[in-house]
């Protein structure tokens, strides 16, 4: 009995440490974003904010009492937020569309070169993305696609398609074949079967693959740093720029960071089941 009690206490201490480690920095970002700037520059520091303010968020949104320099901050931030949403959604929609059609083909349809093509596409996961960044940069320059949504979406597509394809194929392979066979005997065509019967059954897998692709695109930094320098600049490129001036505005940076974290946090809170299933399926290669 004594052993069991000490074991339980050990487990609970471990759990508390794990929670502090995982959530502590996120708490600190949110707490900082709600603290007035003078309070941030005081010693000793306060682990819980003494006064709360929405000033940093107001400056990002461009509402309320703001200084004149904040007008550019607000418009830059709005654009970057919009760019992040557009590019991440576009990358997800295009990747998942192609990956689900292709995944079905690789799982269920016999065609020449099927195994070879699949193997080559999956093998590209092992090629580090930056090996191709320099030639892609010159390709995009010659196609005049630098700083366009289309250009960034294409690069995200090449980066995220293989994993999405891998996930979708394994999802289709796990579906029972008998349903499709029954539908075929009833005279349904392949595409009818695919869109009316298979896709709805594969919905959990579609959600998992979409989440992983979306989070990957949402958090990308190096690709937009090179390919989206100004007009299509996303949050991940804009936020570090807030700190390159002489004075680092930590309240503003943490408020912007918190906004960039909200979407991933919501996904984890509400869709963690799908995310974890996708992560484990994607890693067991």
């Amino acid at each position: 009995m004594d052993m069991r009690l000490s074991h339980r206490i050990g487990v609970w201490i471990g759990i508390v440490v794990l929670l502090v480690w995982s959530v502590g920095p996120i708490y600190w970002a949110i707490a900082t974003s709600l603290t007035p700037t003078p309070d941030l520059m005081s010693q000793p520091i306060h682990f819980f904010p003494e006064h709360l303010t929405l000033n940093h968020y107001q400056r990002l949104a461009g509402f309320g009492y703001i200084a004149s320099g904040d007008v550019t901050v607000a418009s830059q931030f709005r654009n970057a937020l919009l760019n992040s949403v557009i590019t991440a959604l576009a990358a997800t929609i295009v990747s998942i569309f192609l990956a689900s059609l292709g995944g079905y083909a690789f799982a269920r349809l016999e065609f020449p070169g099927r195994q070879t093509i699949f193997f080559i596409v999956i093998a590209t996961i092992a090629i580090p993305g930056y090996t191709v960044l320099i030639p892609l940069y010159r390709l995009m320059v010659s196609l005049k696609l630098i700083d366009t949504y289309l250009g960034v979406t294409l690069i995200y597509l090449s980066a995220f398609l293989p994993l999405a394809l891998w996930l979708m194929r394994s999802v289709f392979q796990q579906l029972p074949l008998s349903i499709e066979e029954a539908a075929r005997i009833d005279g349904a065509g392949r595409l009818t079967i695919l869109f009316r019967i298979v896709m709805p059954l594969a919905a959990p897998g579609l959600v998992a693959a979409s989440i992983i692709t979306f989070l990957g695109a949402w958090g990308q930094y190096m690709v937009p740093l090179i390919f989206s320098p100004t007009r299509t600049k996303p949050l991940t490129v804009l936020i570090p720029e807030f700190s390159t001036k002489n004075f680092v505005d930590y309240g503003l940076i943490n408020a912007a960071g918190t906004i960039a974290m909200i979407v991933p946090i919501l996904i984890v809170v509400f869709l963690n089941r799908y995310l974890v299933s996708g992560l484990t399926a994607g890693s067991v290669k």
Binding site: P25, A29, W218, G219, I239, P240, G257, P264
Partner: peptide
């Protein structure tokens, strides 16, 4: 869910937040 959370966040944002955590004075 709490443990998975850091993986889902943009690496750049993590770096900015940790840079603030490592700040010498504050």
């Amino acid at each position: 869910a709490a443990v998975v959370l850091p993986w889902a966040l943009p690496g750049v944002v993590n770096a900015v937040v940790w840079g603030w955590i490592y700040n010498p004075a504050f």
